[in-house]
Every structure is written in structure tokens, then in C-alpha cells.
Simulated assay, not measured.
Amino acid sequence: MNKTGIKSTPASFIYTLLVITSILSLFPILWMCFISFKSPGESISGINSILVRSPTADNYRRLFELVPIEKNFFNSLFTTAVGTVTSLFFCALAGFAFAKYRFPGRYVLFYFIVLTMLLPPEIGSVPLFIIMRKLHLINSLWSLIIPRIATAVGIFYMRQYILDVPNDLVDASKIDGCSDFGIFIRIILPVIQPALASWAAVTVIARWNDFFWPLLFLQKTSKYTLMVSISLLPVSDGLSTPWPVILAGCTLVVVPIVVLYIFLQNFQKAGLISGAVKG
């Protein structure tokens, strides 16, 4: 019981609950990975499905025969990396302008951008497809990057974070002769590292898992992203569904994003500490 007279929850109970929750969350991923190494004759259902008696990499070999995994993996990696970097830069740049500069129509333009968050992105798929076709960007990976180079959610998020940066810091930089772009690069970006790390984690997951826009803009197998190519795997192999092969593809999609998220999470924690010290 603590000082307020309220009985506190034992730490061991909380840790046990967290461990159980983590196991339940990770079990589908582990089950998928185990199934991807099973031979065709082994069971993939029931309590014994988690056991792999004869591990084999044939499912991955078969997967590489069905789809150009190396090329598709590069396409996903390229669009995710470039899309994330450009989104971070331009969303932060727009957020900086809306937060620290006064210009005519600033609030009208900002609230118009916020209102677009009420509309689903797919509503603009037809006009956007026409624009990409006229720009000769159909079947180009840039069609997945340029239209979302800055998003309403990202601009709103960065603007709200940059509002907390002291104006005196910006004014002092101007007095010292720093240009507007120099202030953004040397002052704003280092201060908002926690926001950049958080938005990077969200953007990486969204870009890697993107399915609708690659399916719309890309029409060649060699240009597909990993998510699209895996979804187009044949659902039947003779008289049975090749689940081990399909789950091998799903493993290649899921495992990299989990590793990337853990990597970005470390940067996010470091950014939070750095931001607290600078604040």
C-alpha cells in the first residue's frame, strides 16, 4: 500500500502480464517463420504445427523461382527509404514555415491542409493516376514517392512540435546572420529529433506495407514491391495450397519491418533524451 492508502499492484504481476502479452503478440510471427521452413509432408495445423521435424529451405527456393524477390525487395527498400527521407524533410520544412513565419493566408492554408485529413487518400486515385500517366511515371518507383512527398498528417504533426521551439532561439539565430534555411537545418532539425524519429517509424511502416498505390501505378512484375509480389503468389499448387511457400514470402515481408522498427525505436529513445536535455 502506498502513501495515499491505495493498494499498489505488485511489480511481478505487471511483468508477468507483459510477458504473456508479448508471447501472444509474437506467436503468430514465430508460427509463420516456423511453417516457412517445413517440408511439404509436415502438418501446418493443430498443436504440433509449431514443431519443425525436418527443416528445409526449399520453400524459399520455390519462392525465388515464382517471383523476382531480389528485384522486388530492392523496390520496397528504395521506395521506403527515399519516401521516408523526403517525407521527413518536406513535412518538417512545411511545419517550420507554418509554426514560425507570418504570411498572408497562413491559417487558411494550414486549416485547409488539416481538413484534407478527413478525406481517404484513395479518393484521389483516379486524378492522381491521370497525372502520373501524363508525367510518364506509370511503372516508375517515383510514382510511389512524389505524390506523398509531404502529407497533411506529417505537416500537422511537425508544426505542432515546432511550435514548442522557443521563438527567442530563432530570433537569436537571425541576429547572428543565419539564413532561414540555415535556421531550419542547424537549429530546428536537431531540436525536433524526437518528432523526426517518431514520424520516421510511422512512415517506414506505412511505406513498406503499402499495397494499394503500388498495385495502381506499377504494372510490370519487375517493378512490383515486395508486398504486391507476395500477394500475387499462386494460391494452389496442384491439389493443395502451398502454404509454406506463401508463408515464406510473408516472412520476408514481416521480418525486415520488425527489425527496422526496433532499430528506429532505439533512435527514438535517444532523441527523446536529447530533446529533454536541450529543452
Rank of each mutant, 00 (worst) to 15 (best):
I155F: 02
Y157D: 08
Y157G: 09
M158I: 09
M158G: 05
R159Q: 15
Q160M: 09
D164H: 14
V165D: 01
N167C: 13
D168H: 10
L169E: 04
L169F: 04
V170F: 11
A172Q: 07
A172S: 05
K174Y: 09
D176R: 00
G177I: 00
C178A: 15
C178Y: 11
C178Q: 13
S179L: 06
D180R: 12
D180Q: 14
F181W: 10
F181H: 08
F181L: 09
G182V: 03
I183Y: 07
I183P: 10
I185G: 03
I188Q: 01
I188G: 00
P190K: 08
V191C: 13
Q193T: 14
P194Q: 01
P194M: 11
A197N: 02
S198A: 14
A200R: 00
A200W: 05
A201P: 08
V202Q: 03
T203W: 10
A206V: 12
N209E: 00
N209V: 03
D210R: 10
W213P: 06
L216Y: 01
F217S: 00
F217D: 07
Q219I: 04
T221S: 14
S222A: 15
T225D: 08
T225H: 02
S229L: 02
L232Q: 14
L232Y: 11
L233Y: 01
P234G: 05
S236N: 15
D237T: 11
L239Y: 14
S240G: 10
T241P: 12
P242R: 04
P242M: 07
W243N: 07
V245Y: 00
V245W: 00
V245A: 01
V245L: 08
I246K: 03
I246E: 05
G249A: 09
C250L: 14
C250H: 10
T251D: 12
L252P: 01
L252V: 02
V253P: 05
V253K: 11
V253E: 02
V254L: 15
P256M: 04
I257D: 04
I257K: 04
V258M: 12
Y261C: 15
I262L: 15
F263C: 12
F263N: 05
F263Y: 14
Q265E: 11
Q265C: 12
N266I: 12
N266C: 13
N266H: 11
